[in-house]
């Protein structure tokens, strides 16, 4: 009985939270349907999809979205791979050294990216990485990795070591233990890390802006700024673009939810 009441309260709270979170987006939705949108919230005089047609019809936007997908999946993959490997080692062999390693890389992330980009630019020109999407994938992976490694280590910490030891008895090597035993259990964590890396790369403006010059390689985060002209912001187009721009990450999250609940079931079974 009490449980049922609690459940009702939970749904009520969730509804309130959802409303609070949606309200700020209301402006974006209304503006995207308005031919003369501006910064103030208003009901469009006439609802139109022109903003969307305009944004989608622009070939440079299509290309930019594609570029951003390549970049973000590239970063997500790199980070997922490298951080799972590193997180595993750092979780299973904790020592003063590994902890020092973790904190060092983690503290470096307080350095604002805008400052970091200056020396990175010089490095990229020297290494001939300038104007290459591959180069940016590596750089963004580098800045996302410290967080991700830290997160992965903690997720793996929660997996009891006994499970692996059982596998080791069965003759499985490290790689196998990680790949077959730990990775599936820590899948929700991997998803979390991957989504974060994807979104970080997807939303990053400064790095691709400074490190790429060819218009054909422009990222969506950069082309979006054409709706953000200093003299006249085209808010309607901007809002439509933003909605389309938010879709991939939200979609990934929904997709990952599936793995997350699966991960829940599996670890529950193992522990129970």
């Amino acid at each position: 009985m009490k449980r049922r009441i609690n459940r009702k309260i939970a749904y009520l709270l969730l509804t309130v939270i959802a409303i609070l979170w949606v309200l700020p987006i209301l402006w974006m939705v209304l503006a995207s349907l308005d031919g003369n949108a501006n910064i103030f919230i208003k009901i469009p005089d006439q609802i139109t999809l022109d903003n969307f047609f305009r944004v989608v019809g622009d070939t440079s936007n299509q290309l930019a979205m594609l570029n951003s997908l390549v970049l973000s999946f590239g970063v997500a993959f790199c980070v997922m791979f490298a951080s799972t490997l590193a997180g595993y080692v750092l979780s299973r062999y904790q020592s003063r050294t590994t902890r020092g390693y973790l904190y060092t890389i983690l503290f470096m992330t307080t350095l604002p990216g805008t400052v970091l980009i200056v020396p990175v630019y010089k490095m990229f020109v020297m290494l001939k990485f300038y104007d290459r999407i591959g180069g940016i994938i590596i750089f963004l992976s580098a800045t996302t990795l410290p967080y991700s490694i830290w997160m992965m280590k903690n997720f793996i910490d929660n997996i009891p070591i006994e499970i692996e030891e059982a596998a080791a008895v069965d003759g499985a090597g490290y790689w196998q233990a990680l790949y077959h035993v730990v990775a599936p259990l820590v899948l929700p964590g991997i998803c979390c890390v991957a989504i974060r890396a994807f979104s970080a790369a997807w939303g990053d403006f400064m790095t691709p802006y400074i490190l790429l010059s060819s218009p054909s390689k422009a990222m969506a985060s950069v082309t979006m700024y054409k709706y953000f002209d200093a003299f006249s912001v085209s808010y309607g187009n901007l809002a439509a673009f933003s909605i389309l721009y938010s879709i991939p990450s939200v979609f990934l999250y929904i997709l990952a939810q599936k793995f997350m609940s699966k991960g829940f079931a599996m670890s529950g079974a193992n522990k129970g």
Binding site: Y130, Y225, K226, F228
Partner: peptide
């Protein structure tokens, strides 16, 4: 594109090197 400060930063960096 970009805000004027960002634009100046990019242009200045590009003008620092013959290659870019």
């Amino acid at each position: 594109t970009g805000s004027s400060n960002d634009m100046f930063t990019k242009a200045n960096l590009m003008m620092q090197s013959e290659e870019t």
